[in-house]
Computed example of a mutant assay.
Amino acid sequence: MDRLNRSKPNDGVSEMLRSLRVRTTIFCRSDMRAPWGFGVRAHGRAAFHVLLEGSCALDVEGVEEPIKLAAGDLVVLPRGPGHTLRSDRDAPVEWLDDILHRTPPVDGRLRYGGRGVHTDLICGVFAIEDREAVPILTAIPTVALVRREDGHTWLGPLLEIIKVEVASFAPGGDSVVARLADVLMLQAIRHELEAVTHDYVIFDSQVGTALRLMREEPDRAWTIGGLARAVSCSRTSLVERFRLTTGMPPMRYLTRLRIATAARELGNSAATLAEIAPRVGYSSDIALSKAFRREMGVTASDYRVAALNGRGHAPGGRVNGRASK
């Protein structure tokens, strides 16, 4: 008989998720008609939004560019920052608390906005029940986005079941949707942990935070001392624990991360090396060019040609000996 779970014995992500317990609270299902917009104040709790139908724009405190969301997308905000969702950039925005006070949800559904295009979304928060597992959230990016169009086979079926349940008004429907949302959050956490850790065994919250910080700001002039201060530990301790977790020192990981980021831009955009260099922490295109060839074994121009022609090196580069995601 085949085993149901074929994960590797030392698969760190599986080990973390095996004991993880998530408890989800759904605020409401929102039936919006353009123009509409609502803001959520920073509250420190892990929040999420699921778009069942329609589209909207998401703005998050500390994130420069707005994020376009489409039907079937799931966004997780693990540290509960202030954020806004709106039908378009010109739509007026009100605080969600004020909207809920003035227009309480009926049968769990909030109806709000004008008479334009319809958007259907579910909003809520979640908590990790096991206190020892809470540091997992530190390794997840400020905005964790799972797009249906990217082909995640688990996302579509879960959302379809949720849509059926929230529309049925059957007895116990709220509990069923809440448990489905628990599964949705577990899947989203797994997706992000795999992307951030590349199968590293991240049980160490400070190493997880260091990884996340470097991935979010590869352009920053990171030093061992700066990283250590950012995660509140000593330089020696961080280097030892980082090497134990990832198999390499922090600055080596940072170099590979920067080159992988540059490789993605070369393969997916028309940006010049001079434009890419400051975005990935290099002072000039010459410095990036030398580092790129040393790390990838090919010149940046040859890599771009091969990537655009769909042969040779795949866009995305390598961070730890595997193609980055």
Score class of each variant (00 low, 15 high):
R111K: 15
G82R: 06
V75W: 09
L96G: 04
T119F: 00
R79Y: 08
D73S: 06
H118K: 12
R89M: 12
G108F: 02
L85N: 01
H83P: 05
I122K: 04
A70L: 11
L100Y: 08
L74G: 03
P104C: 10
D88C: 09
W95R: 15
G80E: 02
G113T: 07
L96N: 05
D120N: 14
E94K: 13
A91Q: 07
W95Y: 14
G124E: 03
D90W: 08
R115M: 11
D120A: 14
P92I: 11
G80K: 08
V117F: 07
P92W: 13
T84L: 10
F126E: 02
T119Q: 01
I67T: 15
L110Y: 05
G114P: 02
V117M: 09
R89D: 12
L96E: 03
R109P: 00
S87E: 01
V76H: 03
T103W: 11
I122Y: 05
I67S: 08
G80L: 06
D88K: 02
L100C: 06
L100N: 05
G113W: 04
D97G: 12
V106S: 14
L96Q: 09
H101D: 12
H83E: 03
G124R: 05
G72I: 07
P105V: 07
R109L: 09
L121I: 12
A70P: 01
T119D: 00
G114K: 09
F126G: 04
D98Y: 09
